[in-house]
Simulated scan of single mutants.
Amino acid sequence: MKTQKILIQLLWISALVIYLYLLTKLILFKGNPVDIKLVLTQLKLLMQEPDLIHTRIVNLTPFQEIARDWHSVSLGRPGSAIHLFGNVLAFIPLGIFIPVLMGNKLLAGASVLVLSLLLSLAYEVTQLLTGMGVFDVDDLILNTAGGIFGYVLFALVRGVKRMIAGEPERTVKKRYDANKSHT
C-alpha cells in the first residue's frame, strides 16, 4: 500500500512538472519551443544595457486590461476572450496540484493563493526583464483567480466525493455536554 501511495505521489509530481513546462512554454515562449538560451541572452543584454528596461511595456493599473478585454468580449472579439479567460484557465490546474501534493490540507487554500500569485509574478517579472512579453498587473489578478478557482473546484469535488462515500465531515465540531455549564 505504501508503494502505491508513493507511486501516485510521483505521478502527481510528474504531472506538475509537465504542467509547469507547458505553462512556461505558453506564457514566456508564446507556444514556441522552450529556449533557455534565449532567456539568458535577453538577460545578458539587459545587464549590458540597463536602460532597455525603460523600453518595456508595463501595465500597473489594476483592472485596466481586464475592463478593456471585457468590453471587447461584449463586442464579439474572440482574441480578447482568449486573453481574459486564458489567464484564468491556465492557472486552474495549479489550484488543484497544490492541495493534492500538500500534506497540510488546512492551509491549502492560503497556499494556493500565495503560490499562484508568486508563480504569476515570476512569469511577469521574467517578461519584464527579458522583453519576452508585457508585465501586466491584470495578469497577476487573473492568474491568481485561476489558481483560487482551481482550488474551489478541487474542494467541491472532494466534498462531493466524501458525501457519496459517506465519510464524515472534516470540520471541527464542538460537542455539547449536558453536564457542563454553558453560561
Rank of each mutant, 00 (worst) to 15 (best):
N32P: 04
L101Q: 07
M163E: 12
L38C: 05
V58T: 08
V134A: 02
T55C: 03
L38T: 09
T130E: 02
G131M: 04
V100E: 06
P93Q: 05
H54D: 10
I141C: 01
L40D: 06
K37Y: 12
L121V: 02
L28I: 13
V17S: 10
L140A: 08
Y19Q: 07
E124T: 02
G166T: 05
L28D: 04
L10G: 10
R175L: 14
R56E: 03
L7S: 09
N179T: 15
L142N: 01
E169P: 09
F85E: 05
A108K: 03
T55A: 11
A67K: 10
S14N: 09
Y19C: 05
R158E: 13
Y21D: 06
D51C: 03
I13W: 12
A90Q: 07
L84A: 01
L26C: 12
A145K: 03
M47Y: 11
P78H: 11
T3A: 15
F135L: 10
L46H: 02
L117V: 04
T171K: 11
I92E: 03
T144R: 02
L20G: 04
M47G: 08
L89G: 14
N87C: 03
G109Q: 04
K25Q: 14
D35M: 03
E169I: 11
D139V: 00
K44V: 12
L60T: 08
K5A: 15
Q127R: 01
P33W: 10
I148K: 04
Y19F: 12
T3K: 15
F91S: 00
N32G: 12
E169D: 14
N59H: 10
S14M: 12
V58I: 15
F29C: 06
I57S: 13
L60W: 07
R175G: 12
A15V: 05
I8S: 14
P78M: 10
V73R: 03
L75S: 09
Y176P: 04
I27V: 15
K5W: 10
L40W: 14
L142V: 00
L20Q: 04
F91R: 00
V39D: 02
L28V: 12
T144F: 01
Q48K: 11
K44F: 12
A122F: 11
V157M: 08
A122L: 12
L140I: 10
I82H: 08
K180C: 10
F63T: 11
N32W: 07
K25S: 08
L115Y: 06
L153D: 02
Y123D: 04
T24C: 06
E49C: 07
E65F: 02
M47E: 09
V112F: 01
W12Q: 09
F85T: 02
L101E: 08
N143S: 08
F85G: 07
L94D: 00
V34R: 06
